[in-house]
Amino acid sequence: MKSTNLYKGSLTTIILKLLNENDKMYGYEITQKVKEITKGELNITEGALYPSLHKLEAEGLLDVEFAKVNNRTRKYYKLTELGTQETVNKLAELEDYIRTMRALVNPKFRLQ
């Protein structure tokens, strides 16, 4: 995807959705998972990912835990109960948005 601005509004939803499916993930893993799922079409930048993760953590939607991996400490993110509820709301919002955009971009031709 050439324009990164297009996905920025949905970044929170993408993160919540991935964590909903994967129990716990760390920052780098999220960037790689998105790249893998979208076959390299969507590239989440570090400068966008971490502020979103930290915001979600501060809002109580994400919890964190740490593990020692290869001489270093890894910070994992996982959904809280509130985060799980919010994921449902955010996904519904995003689906509505996609539907609206589709109607705008590709309106069905009707004969009156």
Binding site: T45, E46, G47, Y50, P51, H54, K55, A58, E59
Partner: peptide
């Protein structure tokens, strides 16, 4: 380089902002 021209500074500022809001 992947962190952009501002390096880590934007990331730190945003985290600080989120923590202050909390």
């Amino acid at each position: 380089k992947k962190f952009g021209i501002f390096g880590f500074s934007e990331l730190v500022e945003n985290k600080q902002r989120a923590l202050n809001k909390y």
